[in-house]
Amino acid sequence: MRAISANKVSEIVKGLCIKANLVLRSDVLNALKAACLREKNTRAKRLLRLIIKNADIARDKKIAICQDTGMPVVFVEIGQDVRVSGDFKKAINRGVEAGYRKASLRNSIISDPLSRGSPKYSPVIIHTDIVRGSKIKITVLPKGFGCENKSALKMFLPTAKIGDIKNFIIDVAEKSGPDACPPYIVGVGIGGTADYAGLLAKKALLRKIERKGLIPKGTVPVFERELLSEINKLNIGPMGLGGKTTALGVNIETYPTHIAGLPVAVNISCHALRSATATL
């Protein structure tokens, strides 16, 4: 069986944390640029230009794109024919800590949600999945909490109309309003259980924002496109000051569910949707 050392895992995670926080994902940057070209509202257009400039400065001067360097969410796909020698979980946390220290990122994690206390760099959130093969794929998503706070879950009846689901998703975007750094990327999880729908909604944010005109066929892509167009009619715009750029993308992930239910979770991302992936 193939073996990977825990130190190697730490080293990779460290690099991913730095990359994710300093270099804006290219699909996000491209979506911002395309939106800036399309935007008619003068102030919105100018704000979009500044958001793009912010990403350039972050990359060139090695300053975090946003001061909220998030609660790091680490997705790990482990091949069934590979093992990690050493403490895998510790290796991930150690890698995050090393990366965050190296790039002077913010320590935003408090060890007790009720008694709070001084912030630290870890522990992070780790989601694991077992896959075929002998590789390990690691993705780091530093999730800011301005937008995380706008997350929502609704357990629909199995007989619910698609229109009701649509209204719920649009409503979450509308309630996020100017607070959570629009333009948003809306992650949606449909199906599974309450917890799994939440995970799907977050995973949906990892998928690239589709380019206009290159959208694949099928029920879900059509639903995504409809939602995006509806959300962009809300006139929230960059910083909530108006314009047709309220969301850059709507990504939906689905999973089989129970005959008695239809869970729908929404995870909002700010315009600084950051993630980085490596396979080892």
Partner: peptide
């Protein structure tokens, strides 16, 4: 209000 999500830009 100031530039939301533009912490690198505001740095200067």
């Amino acid at each position: 209000l100031t530039l939301a999500g533009c912490g690198a830009l505001l740095n200067k």
